[in-house]
Design a binder for these strands. Sequence first.
DNA 1: CCGTTAATGATACTGAGTCTCATTTATAAT
DNA 2: ATTATAAATGAGACTCAGTATCATTAACGG
Lengths: 159, 159
Amino acid sequence: MTEDCQGNDTMSHLENSLEHHKARLRKAGYKLTNARITMLEVLQDLGGHITSADVLDAVAKVDETIGRASVFRTLDLLTQLGIIRPTYIGTSQTPTYVMLPNGHHHHVICTHCNRVIEFEDCGLGELEKKLETALGVSITGHLLEFYGLCQQCTGLSAT
Amino acid sequence: MTEDCQGNDTMSHLENSLEHHKARLRKAGYKLTNARITMLEVLQDLGGHITSADVLDAVAKVDETIGRASVFRTLDLLTQLGIIRPTYIGTSQTPTYVMLPNGHHHHVICTHCNRVIEFEDCGLGELEKKLETALGVSITGHLLEFYGLCQQCTGLSAT
DNA sequence: CCGTTAATGATACTGAGTCTCATTTATAAT
DNA sequence: ATTATAAATGAGACTCAGTATCATTAACGG
Ligand SMILES: [Zn+2]
Ligand SMILES: [Zn+2]
Ligand SMILES: [Zn+2]
Ligand SMILES: [Zn+2]
């Protein structure tokens, strides 16, 4: 499913990506409601590394009437569909959501200052295939996080 | 830092791992308090994929007097030191913590039933070195998560 | 042993995420 | 178009994971 990420598509055209996600919802039997479409648009605009509070704010700006519960329900749904993925950065209080544009996302998190550095190539296509065979699973995406110190924080005394 | 994970150590001797973590705390300038030592022991016993509630319960059983706040403070500290890592499984209410025994952890999460399947080999040593050079960071560990359907859930109609 | 300072425990508090349920709305069938 | 139906929604009360505060304790270097 996930295309191997040896730097093929530079920046998959955003418009189509929205349509693609709508199609996915339909195909999985979910209704294309106003709340869900608005959420997809807002997430696209914000672009990733956002908290639920960010989404709540952005959604309210677009459509005042969309309820708090629907935002959380949709975050869960999109996570289940592999469109977004929550991760914990800095605090375990509330997750940060990242987009999985082609099914995957990769970054380095500085455990000292919480800076996040994204990178593109992971070369995990091979491993993905091996796991599908070995474990009998059907894989649609992945998240790869490295932990350590960023350039700025490496200079300081050890953490 | 992270040893390449092409299946070398089968199950790093638990005793030493505890001492190793204590040494890490000391080296980073943190005091080896009773609360912290108890937490390390409890985490070792539980073995990973646990919530803060699990840890709170287990800690209370060992030492009634250790406070709620210290448990959360220590979870944060151990995360910062790369000994554990919170991730999001099933619910967004509270994270699940995994151990990073040799700096890394890998699993497949079923987005339908939330089953988690761990696996050992990731082959990410090369990429880690490349990133350190390319980004000027100093990497100490990583988490790799694949998303998809487990064997049981693949049988059912599409999700 | 003592002094310094980080770390702790008690406890009140906050707010992210959930639950409930009456109402709405997307969709398919007619 | 009209309607039937079940999924989805919004309001808002509620829960409880995680935090803040601060007086007290204990780790550890000297
Ligand atoms: Zn940093
Ligand atoms: Zn990838
Ligand atoms: Zn499953
Ligand atoms: Zn690894």
